[in-house]
Design a protein around this nucleic acid. Sequence first.
DNA 1: TTTCATTTGTCCGTATGTATC
DNA 2: CGATACATACGGACAAATGAA
Lengths: 236, 236
Amino acid sequence: MYHEIADQLIQAITNGQFTSKLPTEAKLMARFGVSRNTIRRAIDVVYQQGLLRRVQGSGYYINHVQLNSEHAVNLSVGAGKPLIKNAHHPTSEIVTFDKATAGTIALAKQFNVEPDAEVYRVIRLRYMDGAVYALEESYYLTSVVPFLSTDSINSSIFDFLAETFNVTVVASDDYMSMTTLESDQANLMGLEPGDQRLTLAQMNYTKNNTLFNFSKAIYADAKMSFYFHSAHLSSN
Amino acid sequence: MYHEIADQLIQAITNGQFTSKLPTEAKLMARFGVSRNTIRRAIDVVYQQGLLRRVQGSGYYINHVQLNSEHAVNLSVGAGKPLIKNAHHPTSEIVTFDKATAGTIALAKQFNVEPDAEVYRVIRLRYMDGAVYALEESYYLTSVVPFLSTDSINSSIFDFLAETFNVTVVASDDYMSMTTLESDQANLMGLEPGDQRLTLAQMNYTKNNTLFNFSKAIYADAKMSFYFHSAHLSSN
DNA sequence: TTTCATTTGTCCGTATGTATC
DNA sequence: CGATACATACGGACAAATGAA
């Protein structure tokens, strides 16, 4: 219930339906026909995504977050679904698509993933408007994701997982760092070996905080910036 | 109320008082003498810091987050209070401490801070075990922080602000990027001009989401990594 | 400055649903 | 299957901040 209401509120905000303030809790209660606690729970969700400022005695004000950098990734919107601002024509080219065992994968060892775990491996170049913007290696545990096809990874993979296996991201751990490009990585991205680029490693968890996906993405644009919003539960 | 309980729970977890599971909600209700809603609210706070996994029908399990990198910053603990793992002997050396107008500061313009706003400016080198680990420029709006002394910035500045002006961080916006060092920056840090390093820009908000501090820190260690945890409100 | 209605923040009790064991 | 434990929702009460009268 409150999840659906939260989604609708978020849509209403991004659609520009509410420009400066949210309706009062009382009005939202009437509109959705639910109790105050439920409305407040929904608002909590929206607030945590950084879309709202809340002022006791006054109301909920819409936050117009400004990602000044042209190429910016918003990490606080949805765990596991980084959003590029002005993401036009996102395409990707698959470099590798196979199965592997976690024990043989450096990234998996780094995150202490069970070595025996079997995973789908997807390595791909991501393009934006025809230009490479990231080299990404991602892994999906077959224990949670029993089947994966080239079709499903070419379309929105998280949508596919939600529809097919009822797997959604509930929590995620993000690690930002800087890596020096190996020659093969540099070649794929059209950069020079030894160049340094921002790297985002990510662990995604589903219901009951079961790990189902982990990935590492190297971003081609040296001027890329990553945005993250952090909000405490209440404002007082 | 639930804030205090959350703090106590967090302490109990970090103290190792609870190693694998939290007591049940019923037991926590009895222990703290509060209602279930209040306990759950407190648990929400703990959960959002990534310290818990919650499993319906089973209980709350403690998450032993592992920051593998030796030098890692945890951005999800407390907004505005990045924690360095194994932070031994943190000291700092003040490079600049004066007042300025936001309009004259590049960082302020970047974040659309009111140009007329007066700010305290603190530029300093931060040391860990005697070695430079960051060059930080931070600004405090005098409208919220009317007074700042060298004493107060040498000790824990956020503690000082909480005690003196009742100013605490309620929300923050973080921007991670990579910057190329200017010669003066490189000199201060003992690095080469042209070197690239991770940079964290941060906006900190207090009650009612009033901006009171913004800062930019360049980290000396090329292998530094930044951790961030993101959790949805419920696990289902 | 004071008062007062509005609006959000906190807390309580209760009931029912759903996952786990 | 039953007991336990977390998830969701409702309704009510009072506190605290805001803003206008």
